[in-house]
Simulated scan of single mutants.
Amino acid sequence: APLLPLIPGLAETGAFAGELLIVPSLSDTGLLLVLALVCTLFPFALSLVALRHMSAFSAQLAVNLEPVYAIVLAIVLLGEQHELTPVFYAGVAIILLAVFVHPLINRPRRLRHPEVLGTSEAKGVVD
């Protein structure tokens, strides 16, 4: 709020020079819709479905692989492996080890009293 009076002056400076609001073209609008629906909404909906079948901790372990995917794609598609050190590979090994060992160590346990779960989670429980 204290910087609000400075906003009109930003339009004339460096990165903010020119139009501040540009209406996207039809092709840009289509691409933005694809990004919003296919790359954001659909994976989010799938993650919510997956959370019904796994713990939040297990889901977070899978999310931890995202930087590894990004780096592997950068290596394969862009040839960006010039600055990767042995420490980087050790970090990737630790992440992969945690992700793949967790299911072996943490076996799902059967609940003794499933009636304590919420109604949407208590599959097969009869009143």
Score class of each variant (00 low, 15 high):
P103C: 08
R109H: 13
P86E: 11
R112L: 13
R110Y: 10
F88H: 15
R107I: 08
V101A: 15
I94V: 15
L96D: 01
E83L: 11
L97M: 11
L104Y: 07
L111P: 09
I94M: 10
N106D: 15
Y89Q: 00
V92W: 03
G91F: 02
P114I: 07
H82R: 13
I94S: 07
P103V: 04
P103S: 04
P108Q: 07
L97P: 01
A93D: 03
Y89T: 02
T85Q: 07
P108I: 02
L111H: 10
A98W: 11
I95F: 01
H113V: 14
I105S: 10
P108N: 01
R109A: 14
Y89V: 01
V87S: 09
I94T: 10
A93H: 04
G91C: 04
L111I: 07
A98L: 14
N106R: 15
R107L: 14
I105H: 10
V87I: 11
G91S: 04
V92R: 01
V87Y: 06
A98Q: 08
L111S: 14
N106A: 15
L111Y: 12
F100Y: 15
L104T: 08
A90K: 03
A93C: 08
V99D: 03
V92I: 15
A98M: 12
I94Y: 04
H82V: 08
V87A: 12
A93G: 12
T85W: 00
L97W: 10
R107Q: 14
I94G: 00
V101N: 01
A93W: 00
P86M: 09
R110G: 05
F88M: 06
V101I: 14
L96W: 04
L96C: 09
L104V: 10
A98V: 11
N106F: 14
V87E: 09
P103A: 06
V87P: 01
P108W: 03
L104G: 05
E83Q: 13
L104D: 02
F100R: 07
H102K: 03
R112Y: 07
V99H: 06
V87C: 00
R112D: 13
V99L: 07
H113R: 15
L96F: 09
R112Q: 13
G91E: 06
H82S: 14
L111G: 10
H82K: 13
H102G: 00
V92H: 01
A98G: 09
T85K: 08
H82Y: 09
I105T: 11
H82W: 11
H82A: 14
N106G: 02
L84F: 05
F100K: 05
G91H: 02
F88A: 03
L84D: 01
I94F: 11
V101Q: 05
V101G: 04
H113F: 15
I94H: 03
V101S: 11
F88P: 01
